[in-house]
Design a protein around this nucleic acid. Structure first.
Lengths: 189, 189
DNA sequence: ATATAATATATCAAGACTTTTATAGATAAG
DNA sequence: CTTATCTATAAAAGTCTTGATATATTATAT
């Protein structure tokens, strides 16, 4: 469901190929969604069958042909309907917290290592938001007629930034806390 | 992978049935993981085949028989190994942010509605963390010999709480921001 | 200069993981 | 009288990830 509507969303800006859609995913919404080409291509076919899109082949000599998809009126309607449909909030799913939860037989240092690895990853993600994704949004915002849209793009990016900042703050605090735990005494069963 | 190791984790505390494991999932780690019975039961079978668990049937007259699973030495080893294996950080995946990202043709009020619905859901989740899950942790922490473990349980719960608080803070701020956007002028295509 | 990688574009198959739904049946609680 | 609890199984459908297959051009690295 979500993938299809994200595709419709980008195609409501302009017609594109699956390959180009993938690039938009990676450049603009990577902070809250992603998709593989192997998902995108069949999704586009399906949506064409459903009448949400039309497709035209652009022949190329040196490269594979481009299949350019265009959103139909039915597609726009489906998109607008979905956009105001409240979604059930998703489950939080953080596998690495399972590791923390059951880490009582790991030494403080081992736990600290896990947290530090996580912190490195979160710092990197935060940096991507602040530089690359911000740049992509700024660049698209420079077009005319996208004032309202670009406010919303920025709002989602600020979500991502706040998310990673929270992660880092929690990690800092947790590192201090774990370092102060009484050391693991005897047995590693 | 993660499901299996969460099961091993709980079974490292004591032998249990799948049904009981499901209850522990819901009571203790719901803030970062969940699983259905229809996932848990076949996972337990598989893990038994792999020698990570043993199983004994307790016959009951009035209820279905209980299949009590016990972790083996191999299971404990597999768990300890996994617990220190760094996991690749998962993708953020927030379908409702797709709705915000493409909401430029929705009115400010419609966007506000989406945000308010989300806020209600997040408030409810936060309350569950603060009351029910906190209570479950406190109760288990009252046993002897779990001092170290219960610190870690609390650390993961504090993650959940921080997460939902960030959501709510961002939602507050975003609500204000959206209310101040110039109203949507003409066309709802 | 030559080897390697990346870009541009699309398809397909396999498998991993999750959710949904149905089935079963007895007791206890509202 | 209806719903919830207790316990387990299984089929189906949905979603996502991984990896293989093709192929020409351009860029990077050694």
């Amino acid at each position: 469901m979500s993938l299809e509507h994200a595709l419709l969303g980008f195609l409501s800006y302009s017609p594109m190929t699956g390959y180009e859609l993938k690039q938009h995913f990676d450049q603009s919404i990577y902070h809250f969604w992603n998709a593989n080409l192997s998902q995108i291509y069949p999704a586009l076919s399906r949506m064409k069958e459903e009448g949400l899109l039309t497709m035209e082949v652009e022949h190329q000599e040196d490269r594979p042909n481009r299949k350019v998809y265009t959103i139909t009126d039915a597609g726009r309607e489906a998109l607008q309907r979905w956009l105001v449909t409240p979604l059930p909030p998703g489950q939080v799913r953080e596998a690495w917290l399972i590791q923390i939860f059951f880490a009582h037989f790991q030494s403080n240092d081992e736990i600290v290592s896990l947290l530090e690895a996580r912190m490195d990853a979160m710092r990197a993600r935060l940096a991507v938001c602040r530089t690359e994704i911000q740049a992509a949004i700024d660049q698209n915002a420079a077009q005319s007629g996208v004032e309202r849209a670009s406010q919303l793009w920025q709002i989602t990016l600020d979500y991502g930034i706040a998310h990673y900042e929270t992660q880092l703050a929690w990690l800092e605090q947790t590192l201090a806390r774990v370092r102060k735990l009484p050391p693991l005494t005897p047995p590693k069963p």
